[in-house]
Design a binder for these strands. Structure first.
Length: 257
DNA sequence: ATGCCCTTGTAACAAGGA
């Protein structure tokens, strides 16, 4: 099985590149974040021509997550039990069972700044996700992947000094990730195709990509049965190149199952 | 060259991203 996760930063703006990438990469399951289309607005027909079924949890303008599968989609659920909103529900998580594996596509709140209410929301959201995942792991193999908006270690940002006082690198955020791993998940490390650090995000501004001023904030967490079956995992930085890319690169994981 | 911010909604900007 091959699965992938990708924050596409608008599925409408990215559609030509998404279709090209799907046709070339052929994942069995693709978890998407920041689709930025309202419910029903996902280009399901277009990806359907490539053999994919779509489960979408859309919201106008911001957020939006989806699961694309050519292994079927069962038990699709938008959000998760106990998920907080701001104050209303936001389209940040969707789950589906594909080929016997439970997949969750997550778009964790940004947090803005550590003194912002959005930061508190981010920590609450991650805590609620941990509780929901603790229930999921009892039922079978689980993959939770997406844009976590947290760099797990200082090595996961291009310059820790540049992030002093910023979100994504604070101790509570990193502890929230550690707590999620603690309910039964293993980090699936992806190898970079260039350089020594598997960054997944580079700001559009100031040539950040070309100087490799990136962050590793897109993550794949899996239960041990899945993590132990990983043959390869890569950050496809090729998808960050060229005309009209997302600011995130996909992570592609191959399983020996 | 991988090449120096982008996207959406709404109507010339505002807001959000990280």
């Amino acid at each position: 099985m091959r699965f992938a996760t990708w924050n596409v930063n608008s599925v409408k703006a990215r559609l030509p590149r998404l279709l090209e990438w799907l046709d070339a990469t052929k994942p069995d399951v693709l978890l998407l974040q920041e689709t930025k289309v309202a419910q029903g607005g996902f280009p399901s027909a277009e990806v359907g021509e490539l053999g994919y079924e779509t489960a979408e949890y859309g919201q106008g303008r911001w957020n939006g997550v989806a699961v694309l599968s050519r292994l079927g989609l069962e038990d699709v659920r938008n959000g998760f039990p106990g998920e907080p909103g701001y104050p209303d529900a936001e389209a940040r998580a969707i789950g589906a069972t594909c080929g016997g594996v439970r997949f969750l596509s997550v778009y964790v709140p940004n947090g803005r700044t550590p003194d912002d209410p959005h930061y508190t929301y981010k920590l609450s959201w991650l805590s609620a996700l941990r509780v929901a995942l603790a229930d999921e792991v009892a039922a079978g193999p689980v993959v939770v992947a997406g844009d976590f908006n947290v760099a797990p270690t200082d090595a996961d940002v291009w310059d820790p000094a540049a992030f002093a006082g910023a979100t994504h690198v604070t101790v509570p955020e990193r502890e929230a990730l550690s707590a999620i791993r603690g309910v039964g998940f293993t980090d699936v490390p992806a190898r970079p195709l260039k350089g020594d650090r598997p960054f997944t995000y580079w700001d559009y501004r100031a040539g950040a990509f070309h100087q490799n001023l990136g962050m590793r904030i897109d993550l794949v967490y899996a239960t041990p049965d899945i993590a132990g079956a990983v043959k390869d995992a890569v950050v496809d930085r090729e998808a960050r190149k060229g005309k009209g890319p997302s600011d995130h690169a996909p992570i592609v994981v191959d399983l020996d199952r």
